Amino acid sequence: MFKKSLLYYKSLLFFLLSIGIELLLLPILYIWEYILRKLSNYLNKKPLKYNQLRKREKVTDISLLNVCVHEWGGYEMKRSKTIRGRQFDCGLEYQLRRLRNYRGNVKLRNTITISDYDLFKYKTELSDFNVVPVENLAMDFSGYSKFIELLPLDNQYVLLMNSSISARQVDFIDEYLNYFKENQELGMLGISFSSKSYQTLIRNNFQPHIQSFFILTTKQVLTEVIDLNGGFLPGSRSNYKLSIIKFGELKLSKLVLKLGYRIAVIKENGIPFVFYRNKWYDNGYGRWTNPDGDCRLYVKELNAINPLIISLLK
């Protein structure tokens, strides 16, 4: 699936270098994580003077949603994926179906980005979508990065997805978008999350992040992230899988939080979980109410879009 280019070896070297630094500082980093957890627990027990909430800029058209679905050209339209020994159905076919069947309140501007486009056997089935071939370099982030480049300059709503979302069909766009509109402090909204990084030697690390196969956000937030990251989307210049996750998926949430926004996920029970950092010395661990690690270790259905339970929010 990957072309082992010079970028691949650079990404691998950079990842190994980061692991080497962790190895050298291992005792210090373990102790630091322990201190941050204890400090956050302590701070969470007393009234805090919260930082002023950062709010998103208004979008120019609240009735428009720009959708990007990224796919690798070698996949079948329907496929099964296995995560941690558990299998589920997914594939581009189900993503196309949920977008084509949408009859809601906003206009969808749909784009399919495909890496290794020459391998894709179903080109005629995408005649009603804007199709953008991209290089097979950085998994989802190759498609996401190119899609962001093609967006208009004005601020608009953006939904980034890949084809590894559960096949189960759920009407979600209007409810998710309305919740996102009503909560201007959110920088990103997702459907799956983890409290830690698995691409590290620091096993007691606390790095909450939204998993990158579903991200609802805005052009303005993405632009801020790109600017903060030196002019490119996190992960888009990596070609080694573990490096893409560590410096792409994890870093994306980290930068959104650093910018002062909150991040949220719609949990399996339909209730949003909102996470934020308050002070630089408060990593938010004391406000984490979910099990430790990847949520896919304990949910019933992997990579699923779950309906937002509106009644529970009132």
Rank of each mutant, 00 (worst) to 15 (best):
E224P: 04
D292M: 03
D174M: 06
Y34V: 06
N306I: 00
F15L: 01
P234V: 07
I202P: 00
S127Q: 15
I21R: 09
I305K: 02
G293N: 06
R98H: 02
Q169K: 11
A138E: 01
K241M: 02
M1S: 15
I271S: 04
Q220G: 09
L186Q: 06
N290P: 02
K107A: 15
N303D: 11
M161V: 01
D174H: 09
I83R: 12
P27I: 01
R203Q: 14
V221T: 12
A264Y: 08
D282L: 09
L257G: 05
E57R: 05
F214K: 10
N269M: 06
I35Q: 07
L250T: 10
K254N: 13
N130V: 13
L96Y: 03
R287D: 12
L48I: 13
C90I: 04
D61L: 09
N229K: 05
D171W: 11
K258T: 15
S195P: 12
V131L: 07
C68P: 08
G143I: 13
D282F: 06
N101R: 13
L96T: 12
S236W: 00
L160H: 12
M77F: 03
I226G: 10
S80D: 15
F147I: 02
I309R: 12
F206P: 13
L313D: 11
K246P: 02
Y198N: 13
L24R: 05
T217C: 14
I62G: 00
G73Q: 05
N183C: 07
Y276W: 09
S163A: 14
N303Y: 09
N204G: 11
D140F: 01
E57G: 14
N290H: 11
G20E: 01
S192D: 08
F129Q: 03
G20V: 02
L137K: 15
R86Y: 04
K196C: 15
M161D: 06
L26G: 07
N204P: 10
L153A: 15
Y75Q: 05
D61G: 08
L92E: 05
I173R: 06
V274F: 07
R56K: 12
R54C: 11
R287K: 12
S311C: 03
P291Y: 01
W280A: 02
L48K: 14
F214P: 06
F232E: 14
R287G: 10
G74N: 07
Y179R: 01
I191T: 09
K258M: 13
L150K: 13
Y298D: 02
L255E: 12
S142L: 10
S311G: 00
L302A: 01
N136Q: 10
K49C: 08
V221A: 10
S238M: 15
I305L: 11
K196Y: 09
L228W: 02
N155I: 11
K219M: 04
S163H: 09
P234R: 05
Y9Q: 01
G230M: 05
